[in-house]
Design a protein around this nucleic acid. Structure first.
Lengths: 213, 213
DNA sequence: AAATGTTTGAAACATACGTTTCAAACAGCG
DNA sequence: CGCTGTTTGAAACGTATGTTTCAAACATTT
């Protein structure tokens, strides 16, 4: 049983360290010593650091996207030819995200931070990998968002989608330090579910703001 | 005249490379070869890589924050004891940001990306530096935002501010690739001013969304 | 139990990094 | 000009990185 434990320990350590410090700032020696395995084990099990990075994403995204695709299937079926509601789509996404990190609520924040890093750091291989591997589910979700906002022209919708994406990635990325800050300054504590509960109305309202042509 | 040119060339190259690839992924050799100066010039003029990073931020933020502080002074005076409007505050911030990158519109995007990196990468020294150096202006702006939203409780306001921050940083960070994407997919091109014109209504509407207590 | 294929451990490898050194080139000024 | 302090250039330094090597340990099958 110690066989798979090595690879899994490496993934666990890498996931956490990458999300805390970025990819280039995290050395294989950092990872292997946190995971209590030998340095060579990374190259043995994953081939290279690049492939380790991709494996970290794959371990989270593959089941997540499969589940999301199922949820979308069901959502579309239940919808028939009705117009979807944006808030429902956001809720669906939120439910799936929370479910993906079940057992460990920190996982969602960690992963949002990783996604942010994937786009802010120069990891060309990662972007290609993500698009190739998970682009289809993303496109399916987006076409539902389009159906949910027939009043917007393509340009306005394009930008508002990215405004929503930014608000979400940014706040959920930093959800740990932000909740700590809120607790320190305001004396209240909220879990990630609480943040999402506040985020959805914000996004819905912004996305459906009056369109000044 | 070649004296100050060396330091300035280094700052220009560093600003661009840091924003493209992050801090750790950009080596001093990358910077000095892009700037066409000797490697040792960085340590001579700035002391260390850390101090170079801080100098890049200082060159942009020091004049920006001074101008912003002036604008806020004027805004508060003009306001008297009226309640400020959030949209006006956002517009004021946008005007100052655009003015800071006058001559080079790319500059705003570059700098947003740098600010994003400052918070997403593990650069503890940078966060301390920024807070110490520019925290006061930030706090002044925030207290106006608080005055502009008396209907929100502290917690809701706290989160909505960060939602706005996220949408802004994320979209303006990637404004170059996003406008390219919009042009490719939708056949239209918008400058950063156009993006900000779309962003402000989105943020205002989200920030003032009905508060479900 | 023996043999085989898989996984680990300790060490070395080549390379790239930030930083330092020190002599040469340059500036401004008496 | 000759001098002094500042800036540059080429090379080296020490350290840390990703990767490779190869023998030892292990697990699995016959």
């Amino acid at each position: 049983m110690a066989q798979k434990d090595t690879a899994k320990s490496i993934l666990n350590a890498a996931e956490e360290l990458f999300s805390e410090r970025g990819f280039a700032e995290t050395s294989l020696r950092n990872i292997t010593s946190k995971a209590s395995v030998n340095l060579a084990a990374v190259n043995y099990h994953f081939g290279s650091k690049k492939e380790l990075i991709q494996a970290v994403f794959a371990r989270f995204l593959t089941p997540f996207c499969a589940d999301l695709d199922g949820s979308l299937e069901e959502f579309e079926a239940r919808l028939g030819d009705q117009t979807p509601q944006l808030a429902d789509l956001l809720r669906l996404l939120a439910e799936n995200s929370l479910a993906a990190g079940k057992g460990n609520p920190r996982r969602v924040g960690i992963f949002m931070r990783l996604l942010g890093l994937a786009y802010s750091q120069e990891q060309g291989h990662l972007r290609k990998f993500l698009r190739k591997e998970y682009g289809a589910v993303f496109a399916r979700f987006m076409s539902l968002v389009t159906a949910a906002s027939p009043e917007l022209d393509d340009q306005e919708r394009f930008w508002r989608i990215h405004f929503m994406l930014g608000a979400t990635v940014f706040t959920l990325s930093g959800v740990e330090s932000l909740t700590a800050m809120a607790e320190h300054d305001l004396g209240v504590s909220t879990g990630i579910e609480g943040v999402i509960d506040r985020l959805v109305p914000f996004l819905s309202s912004g996305f459906q703001a009056p369109h000044q042509g």
